[in-house]
């Protein structure tokens, strides 16, 4: 449901601002995540399990998506709205002939805000050439962590779920190296996302009387900070001011 709200929000922003913007960009790649509190929390959860489950990846580098709707000024400065999505997680499992036990955390951060990009270097021109620019975002993120445990045997089944959520300001700074074609630019984008680490609020467990609790014993902070890198494609919708002047 929250994804639908986000989609509607981005759609409204796009629709209302379409006539004013020069283009939009999509960056798909991966990000690393600090998430130190959630790692500690996962360790605490694993220690509560009735069996010695094996802990697999701890919030590894995973999907990161950034969409930018921008307007370009005559100086090459680009400013506009940005939407970003990041996800990662962790997983522990125990399996024997009688059944299996899974313990998962799945973190997703939906981020919306404003962006600014400034050209540092341009070889050729914006219709055909190579450019290097710096960018910065200020975003507000809705970070949701879905914690779930499932015990599945032939005659016993238990499923428990707990949602943690936080609204956290974030900022990303980075560089873009782009090759410009006529209406499309493409290249690499990379930077560092700083999360201001707001505290998660904890929901209720879905199971009435679970065999072990998923509730955290203390405060947990979001901690999505990390490096981001991805492949970027820019679609220029309307002529830029520099094109109009020419």
């Amino acid at each position: 449901m929250k994804k639908i709200y986000c989609f509607l929000l981005v759609s409204v922003v796009c629709a209302s601002g379409y006539g004013q913007f020069n283009g939009f960009s999509v960056t798909g790649g991966i990000g690393t995540f600090a998430l130190s509190d959630l790692k500690t929390y996962q360790d605490a959860l694993v220690s509560r399990l009735p069996f010695e489950a094996r802990q697999f990846a701890y919030f590894p580098a995973y999907t990161n998506l950034r969409i930018n709707l921008f307007k370009e000024s005559s100086s090459g400065l680009e400013y506009g709205f940005v939407f970003a999505f990041s996800t990662t997680g962790t997983h522990a499992n125990y399996t024997d002939y009688s059944g299996s036990l899974n313990l998962d955390q799945r973190v997703a951060a939906y981020q919306g805000g404003v962006s600014l990009s400034y050209p540092l270097l341009l070889s050729g021109n914006r219709e055909k050439g190579f450019g290097l620019s710096a960018y910065g975002d200020l975003r507000l993120a809705f970070v949701r962590n879905n914690v779930s445990s499932v015990i599945n045997t032939l005659y016993y089944f238990e499923s428990n779920e707990l949602n943690l959520s936080a609204l956290s300001p974030m900022s990303e700074l980075g560089l873009q190296a782009l090759v410009h074609f006529n209406k499309i630019s493409t290249g690499l984008e990379g930077g560092y996302l700083l999360d201001f680490n707001r505290k998660f609020s904890t929901g209720d467990q879905s199971a009435f009387d679970p065999s072990f609790s998923l509730r955290p014993s203390g405060d947990i902070r979001s901690g999505m900070s990390g490096f981001r890198i991805g492949l970027k494609v820019i679609f220029k919708i309307l002529p830029t001011i520099s094109e109009e002047l020419n």
Binding site: K3, C6, F7, V10, S11, C14, Y18, F24, V26, F51, A53, R54, F56, A57, Y62, T63, L65, I67, F85, T87, T88, G89, T90, H91, N93, Y94, T95, D96, Y97, S98, S100, D104, R106, V107, A108, F235, I237
Partner: peptide, 28 residues
């Protein structure tokens, strides 16, 4: 086209959620 792209991105992003099917099998 913009809406189509956004729609595709959102549909695609749901399949990007983290998942790990690894299992630790114990013989008893």
């Amino acid at each position: 086209n913009i809406f189509t792209v956004f729609l595709l991105i959102f549909l695609f992003s749901s399949s990007c959620y983290y998942s790990d099917p690894s299992t630790y099998e114990v013989e008893i």
